[in-house]
Design a protein around this nucleic acid. Structure first.
Length: 345
DNA sequence: CGATTTTGACCGGCGC
DNA sequence: GCGCCGGTCAAAATCG
């Protein structure tokens, strides 16, 4: 969760899905409601009283949860600031030891911590809230004994996030369209899953270290599990101006050639979990950190502003594509309009 | 012909 | 030390 989102007034929709809150409703000068209130007061059955009590209790709980959420957001912001500082310090240390980082030198040298396998715990802990699993400050301070190198390597592991996507069972291609261009560089059948796992590298930027693994879920073959490792060092590639049927995923467009992709659904798969916004938040934070690593505060601030704007646009696009969100929005807005509109009948 | 995918070989970490 | 296994490489194949 990104506290920035919560702090943005434009994104605070104040939606009321379902019945409008009674607390405000009682104060509205609407004859209809007053009649109902009088009716309720006259009746004042135990059931009504119980419901009112329950409502009050839930309102109180809602308020408490909101406060807790705000506290968590503040804590998160604080931790992120600490992490950013650590990244700057670590980058300074790396730059002193490895000044040739700007050289192209092939992706293998750029790829961090090659053949480092995340444990299942790491995958679970980083799922959908990567920054919560960002290197913990106290971990690095504990590098004084034991296996410091190993510890450092663990801390330098690329971020891992997972995306679950519905896919047509008849469609055997391992394509997850996420807006980026990927180049497949390997496929492997793993021990724990009969379905093959495909390995992709980001092909939009040659030096982009991000990798993606796509594999069907062992439990449900209609679900594609895309595991992202690393951070994009570039923005999201813009959609092509023409060719409405063009796919953002290069692997996907190429896979149309083989017979496996013959049954590819025309519409993009719908995410099982709302991980796309989270991933975009990750990109935003990644890019913010990238700017911080460069060590130019002004550029970082400008990039941050730009990234936030892009993030908002991307989130809006993602949400507007979601039918369930649209339905909820329509319900909430209609309820809100009915609540606010003067009753003249 | 260039870009991309496929696929077997290879490498290195890890558990026994 | 050995074997297993996941991840990557790179040559061949394929496509537009």
């Amino acid at each position: 969760m990104d506290p920035w989102i919560g702090s943005q007034p434009s994104l605070s929709l104040d939606l009321h899905v379902g019945l409008p809150p009674l607390g405000r409703h009682h104060q509205a000068k609407q004859p209809k409601v007053l009649v109902e209130e009088n009716f309720l007061q006259l009746k004042k059955e135990p059931e009504v009283t119980a419901l009112e009590t329950e409502l009050q209790r839930m309102s109180e709980e809602n308020r408490r949860l909101s406060e807790a959420l705000a506290a968590v957001a503040a804590k998160y912001e604080e931790l992120r600031g600490q992490y950013a500082e650590m990244v700057v310090v670590a980058a300074a240390g790396v730059n002193t030891t490895n000044p040739s980082s700007a050289s192209e030198g092939g992706s293998a040298s750029v790829s961090p911590s090659r053949k480092r396998k995340p444990t299942s715990e790491e995958i679970i802990s980083t799922h959908d809230h990567d920054d919560a699993a960002a290197p913990h400050p106290h971990h690095q301070t504990e590098c004084t004994s034991g296996e410091p190198c190993k510890r450092i390597r663990e801390e330098c592991k690329p971020k891992v996030s997972k995306l679950y996507v519905h896919a047509d069972p008849a469609d055997l291609s391992l394509v997850v369209k996420d807006g980026y261009q990927w180049r497949k560089y390997g496929q492997k059948v793993t021990k724990d899953n009969p379905c093959p796992r495909a390995y992709f590298r980001c092909s939009f930027a040659p030096a982009c270290p991000v990798k993606k693994k796509v594999q069907r879920s062992a439990d449900d073959c209609t679900i594609l599990v895309a595991t992202y490792e690393g951070e994009h060092n570039h923005g999201q590639p813009p959609p092509p101006p023409s060719s409405s049927s063009h796919q953002h995923d290069a692997a996907g467009s190429k896979n149309n050639n083989n017979n496996n992709a013959a049954a590819k659904p025309p519409s993009p798969p719908r995410p099982v979990v709302p991980a796309a916004p989270a991933y975009q938040q990750q990109q935003q934070q990644q890019q913010q950190q990238q700017a911080l690593v460069v060590g130019e505060p002004v550029a970082a601030a400008a990039a941050s502003e730009l990234i936030r704007r892009n993030l908002a646009e991307q989130m809006a696009m993602t949400l507007t594509r979601d039918p369930s969100f649209k339905a909820a929005l329509v319900t909430a807005l209609s309820g809100r309009i009915l609540e606010l509109s003067p009753t003249k009948d």
